[in-house]
Nucleic acid binder design. Structure first.
Lengths: 125, 125
DNA sequence: CGCTTAATTAAGCAAAAGCTAAAATAAAAA
DNA sequence: TTTTTATTTTAGCTTTTGCTTAATTAAGCG
């Protein structure tokens, strides 16, 4: 993808290759993490995750009410979160309840917990 | 944004309003967090962050070499990260070095640290 | 069964993202 | 000063995202 390489003084080819190796090593984990962060990196979805961390479980309708959004729009977000393994759903009668799912909880819990703690962007100085 | 409210049995209006209040409370922090996660939720940018966590600082050229990407493409990612307060740059001669910045480090550090530790998506069972 | 309710899905569209290629800055070096 | 090098910026284009509206599926209930 790259045509002209930099010919700077410090072009340490060994170093470059070392970085590439290290990257390749974590590639699968990094890819997985990136997808979770991409899901959480949307304000609406992060709100949904925050609510579910608080409330254990909520139905589509409740979430739509809280966020003042269309059921359809919310449902589409929930689908993404479910597909990403962040949420799981269980149906009771005709209502579907969503809840945080195990797999990525270790990543999300601390982020969500930080929200209730620190209101400002700088968390403790 | 919503036309018809759900008329389900458990439509607890008080509960809904309680959730809205709690959300409103963390709104600024949540917004800030979402923007950082959105930045990190891109594979290329997450790689850049991972590299910088390892290497302290790198120039645009180095990163482009490691990622096998155009300098221009990398530069555009770096700009977003810098605008988001995740990175800062300092120029030495004609080369610009980028490094992780303080403000959002408490959020990012644990995520990046988790990468080197656990190769699989499930971090310890 | 037909009707209502909860939720999903599909289609369409505007906005945002991410890349390429080319032009513009800026700081050495010749 | 002209040229080279490192980086940024711009324009253009394709893909993805997130919403709306309308249609569809599914589960009670009269």
């Amino acid at each position: 993808m790259k045509s002209t390489a930099c010919i700077r003084v410090f072009a340490d080819t060994n170093h470059i290759r070392q970085c590439q190796t290290r990257l390749a090593h974590v590639e699968p984990a990094l890819q997985s993490l990136a997808s979770v962060l991409a899901l959480a990196g949307n304000e609406v979805r992060l709100k949904i995750l925050f609510l579910l961390a608080d409330e254990q479980q909520l139905c589509v309708c409740d979430i739509a009410d809280v966020l003042q959004m269309t059921v359809s729009a919310v449902s589409q977000h929930l689908r993404k979160l479910k597909d990403g393994g962040v949420l799981h759903a269980h149906k009771v009668g005709q209502t579907v309840f969503y809840a945080l799912s195990q797999p990525h909880l270790p990543v999300l819990q601390p982020l969500l917990a930080g929200l209730s703690a620190a209101p400002s962007p700088q968390p403790a100085q």
